[in-house]
Amino acid sequence: MPEALSIRTAAESSPAAATAATAAPREIKVTARDVNVSYGEKQALFDVDVDIAARSVMAFIGPSGCGKSTFLRCINRMNDTIPICRVTGRIEVDGRDIYDPEIDVVQLRARVGMVFQKPNPFPKSIYENVAYGPRLHGMATNKAELDAIVEESLRRASLWKEVSDRLEQPGTGLSGGQQQRLCIARAIAVSPEIILMDEPCSALDPIATARIEELIDELTENFTIIIVTHSMQQAARVSQRTAFFHLGRLIEEGPTEQIFSNPKDRRTQDYITGRFG
């Protein structure tokens, strides 16, 4: 499958390109045009247009129910699991429309990984949690290769040191922060190009949150990360660009610094200064 091949080449060649993320002209990874989403009668998202650069962190902020999570879940078509959800418009990853009937949603999700709000490790061993994805996609031909992928992923998620001696223990036995890093390891084990994070720190304590934020920073080297967050400080800390959603519309998008220091829209201003939210 040529698409699948390109995943790995992109991932492998990324370190070279990653160093100059800010200087070089932006390489666009995700493009959304006129995206509308409705749940049954209720429209949740209106005409969203956005471009997301490769190997950077894009933060979505906005009050509860503003549609930021909905939009995030459109990017790997997780919304497909909700029967009444309808998506129109165009979302492209690397220039290909992901809602094209030709696209296999399963392969799309291998390229666009996801980390959820609450850590949700499988009720299996730590090793099995990470190995599941690679096995599913036939990424290893033997046990040694699989071991290597598991170790590499756990290292990248900076969890290896803590769990290397107890890989056979259930993933559900880890602490909340460790569980969330395990979920990140699980997501990066399939070498996605994009990782979606849906409020990944909302269930964690500040120390664990700090670890995850550090990790996000490191991951930018290789991955395009889109993070939904409730915390504006977090958005300011981890992201290069920020998009502000309100009432189902994308109000403003731009470099994070600019959004927080000099927003162009009144509503953005009101939100970041705490008038509502």
């Binding site: 699948a4 790995r8 599913l136 036939g138 990424m139 031909t141």
Partner: peptide, 11 residues
């Protein structure tokens, strides 16, 4: 040629 990752579906 023994690289299942290239296949759309697992063997």
């Amino acid at each position: 040629e023994g690289r299942p990752g290239v296949l759309h579906s697992l063997p």
